[in-house]
Design a protein around this nucleic acid. Structure first.
Length: 740
DNA sequence: ATGCTAATCCCTT
DNA sequence: AAGGGATTAGCAT
């Protein structure tokens, strides 16, 4: 002790000596003070002006390590000495470092807390074991396994503790005994040390005690703590900030999962049955009581639905946890999905515990409803054999609202609970919960969104059912090839792939998602609710080269969805609205079924009029309908390319531009509409196809080539042409349906 | 007391 | 000699 202080004292003395010896202005400034005279040349204490600091800071952000030249430049610009700039950067760097270390220290402490809590839980459970089966002595092998686990745990705890103590001393305590080992200080640090001691005692005293049978079941006490293998990185390897963020994510995911489970529970007080007993509405009071109150200024959309889907839980979970496969499963809903981070990949080779961060755009097929951009976590958990849950939650949730002032929507805990059924089907309960800024949605679509049909659980379930049915049909028909088309399996697959591309390109033109790069044109021409966009295609073989113009709009139609859909997909009535028909009916050449009803298929159409010139063009068309939406998309394709595709060749190089329609109910019809629970994959008697007598919203989208030179300039005439095309088409449809 | 910052000291490359 | 880490003095909270 004495020796140390003596040493320090001496060092200080030395320092003062050297300072007073070498630095003359120290003495001068002392004189200054005495004389009350200030020399502007050098102040004894001085801080750089806020301006200078700001400049330095911003430079530091770009480049924390400027070279000689950059520093000289800065010093000139800021009126500082070259040396000062150098020192500033040096100091800034060391400051960063200490902050970093301090942060890490905090993280280590937290980690330690968690471990201790977990450990004391284990210890607790072991000290009064409950054998719930026989009460007899447990298997010796398992005892030693348990014991082993505890020992490992304790060793890790001890190791981490010593690290923390070392760090703590380094930063907090004065390094009085900097020469001695940090461990020597342990006895003074009573609280922490006691914890360890107790744990060790608990461990050793447990040798030979009966096995705690109730404890190690997969879903027991252990999994309630956020214990995720792989997340707990070797200490210090993972950066503090990243680790802080991760632990926040984990907590958010766990809370979201708990919320989803509560929301998905049948007969939960969180939902109120409507009068007809079919639709359920969120009980906002109960929700606010259990979770969080509703923020002002946002519309809420909470829906729940259950359906039977022809897929097993494992396959569905795999699909949901793979960003690309997920987007492929819901192509009409997911415009774009980008994986951002894999926080955990799951435990023991399963998806249980997997946690992903991703960004996605969710769309409704209309230019009048902007895509919903969300950055969210997706967390998967197995709740029992054959029972899984996957929950999504926006990552803005749980953070300051002030951090995301420009948010137009967010997704509250949403997702599904999947339960295997005996026959390869599974029962899926979906909960969908959004908050969004209603002002960005066109008036025409607000009722639809309010009713929950637009983005609600029902739509997810319906899409899932339709897609899984399609997969099932394709699988079965590949075994029993009973279809009348003379198409090979490979040809069929290529055709479907081409149709898939066509359809999703249609979606992108209608919704302007960022999945494809569109350049939007003067939107406010006449406020005519039409979205016109353009893109230059130079090297995408899937589209004709040149300038492509996309136009889309949505209108209300006093006709049921079913009627509109049946009309538009009727090739015999094609000439009533489609200029490609050359004035006559069309014929279906090829039909590939994608669903049980006739409405879900990919087909090839030929314009009927016997015109030698038309022989080179066919119409590729995809139609689908489910209880939330109906779509007809088509594109002219040249025969030679199609022949290649039909014989199983690559469809990537077939150039096409899609046009078509999307139809949704207007949302103002009978309240139960569209939220009718689907009892199975069969149709619902109550006008399941949408024939509820109400009106519908029709979206029309065209993509046309206005110039086959990518370098050409777009003319206003082309824009007018495509706009005219759309409004004429709408007029013709109205006329044919007698509602003009 | 504790934290922050400009400046210095001292060691490594 | 240049640069970086450790340390300190002077002030602010």
């Amino acid at each position: 002790m004495e020796g140390h202080s003596g040493l320090i004292g001496r060092m200080r003395d030395d320092d003062y000596e050297s300072r007073s010896g070498s630095d003359n202005f120290d003495g001068v400034s002392g004189d200054d003070q005495d004389a009350g005279d200030d020399q502007p040349k050098r102040k004894r204490y001085h801080r750089h002006t806020p301006n200078q600091i700001q400049d330095l800071e911003s430079f530091f952000k770009e480049c924390p390590h400027p070279d000689e030249k950059q520093r000289l430049d800065l010093s000139k610009r800021l009126g500082l000495e070259n040396k000062q700039v150098k020192f500033w950067f040096q100091n800034r760097r060391t400051q960063m470092k200490t902050q970093l270390e301090r942060h890490e220290n905090i993280m280590l402490r937290q980690e330690n807390e968690k471990l201790r809590a977990e450990n004391s839980m284990i210890k607790d459970a072991m000290s009064n074991p409950v054998c719930n089966s026989c009460g007899g002595p447990a298997l010796p092998g398992q005892i030693s396994f348990e014991e082993h686990q505890i020992r490992i745990e304790n060793a890790r705890l001890k190791d981490e503790l010593s690290r923390i103590v070392a760090l703590t001393n380094k930063f907090l305590g004065k390094p009085i005994s900097s020469l001695s080992s940090p461990m020597a200080l342990l006895p003074s640090n009573s609280g922490l040390e006691l914890g360890i001691g107790m744990n060790r005692i608990g461990c050793s005293s447990n040798v030979g005690t009966p096995l705690p049978m109730g404890l190690d079941l997969g879903d027991g006490v252990l999994s309630t703590a956020p214990a995720m293998p792989g997340v707990r990185s070797p200490m210090g390897l993972l950066g503090n900030d990243a680790q802080l963020e991760r632990s926040m994510f984990i907590e958010l995911a766990l809370a979201a999962m708990a919320e989803l489970i509560k929301m998905a529970q049948p007969d939960s007080p969180l939902w109120i049955k409507s009068l007809d007993g079919e639709k359920e509405v969120l009980n906002h009071e109960e929700y606010a009581r259990l979770f969080s109150p509703k923020p002002a200024g946002y519309a809420t959309e909470a829906t729940k639905d259950t359906g039977i889907v022809i897929i097993n839980s494992l396959a569905l979970v795999e699909t949901l946890m793979d960003v690309n496969r997920w987007a492929e499963m819901f192509p009409s809903m997911i415009a774009r999905a980008v994986p951002l981070d894999v926080i955990t990949n799951g435990m023991g080779g399963t998806r249980n515990g997997a946690l992903l961060l991703m960004h996605s755009e969710v769309q409704l097929l209309s230019p009048l409803v902007p895509v919903r951009q969300v950055r969210f976590l997706r967390f998967c958990k197995q709740h029992a054999e054959g029972v899984w849950a996957v929950v999504d939650v926006s990552v803005e949730i749980g953070q300051d609202a002030a951090n995301a002032p420009f948010m137009t929507c967010r997704r509250l805990p949403s997702g599904c609970v999947v339960q295997d059924m005996p026959n390869g089907y599974s029962k899926v309960t979906w909960v969908e919960h959004w908050q969004y800024d209603e002002s960005v949605v066109h008036q025409l679509y607000r009722p639809l969104l309010n009713s929950g049909i637009g983005f609600g659980a029902h739509r997810w379930i319906a899409t899932l059912q339709r897609q899984c049915e399609c997969l099932a049909i394709l699988m079965s028909s590949s075994i029993a090839s009973d279809d009348h088309t003379a198409l090979s399996q490979a040809g069929k697959r290529s055709m479907l792939k081409l149709a898939q591309r066509m359809t999703s390109n249609f979606y992108s033109g209608v919704c302007a998602s960022s999945a494809r790069k569109w350049e939007s044109l003067s939107v406010e021409t006449l406020g005519d609710d039409m979205r016109v966009m353009t893109r230059k295609n130079v090297d995408d073989p899937g589209e004709p080269p040149g300038i492509v113009l996309s136009a889309a709009t949505s209108v209300w139609m006093p006709v049921s969805r079913q009627r509109l859909f049946d009309f538009l997909r009727n090739e015999g009535l094609r000439s009533e609205w489609d200029i490609l028909s050359n004035g006559g009916p069309m014929q279906e050449m090829v039909h590939i079924a994608k669903g049980q009803g006739h409405g879900n298929c990919v087909s090839l159409l030929r314009a009927g009029s016997v015109n030698a010139n038309d022989g080179s063009m066919l119409i590729l068309q995809e139609t689908w309908t489910d209880s939330s939406c109906s779509v007809v998309v088509y594109a002219p394709v040249d025969v030679q390319s199609l022949n290649v595709v039909m014989s199983g060749g690559d469809s990537e190089y077939v150039a096409l531009l899609p046009s078509g329609f999307a139809i949704v109910p207007d949302g103002q019809s009978s309240p139960g509409y569209g939220v009718v629970p689907n009892s199975s994959n069969g149709t619902i008697p109550k006008g399941g196809g949408g024939d509820d007598g109400g009106g519908s919203l029709l979206t029309v989208g065209f993509q046309i080539l206005v110039n086959n030179l990518p370098t050409a300039k777009l003319t206003m005439e082309s824009v007018d042409t495509v706009k005219n095309l759309i409004s004429c088409t709408i007029q013709k449809i109205k006329g044919s349906l007698g509602v003009a």
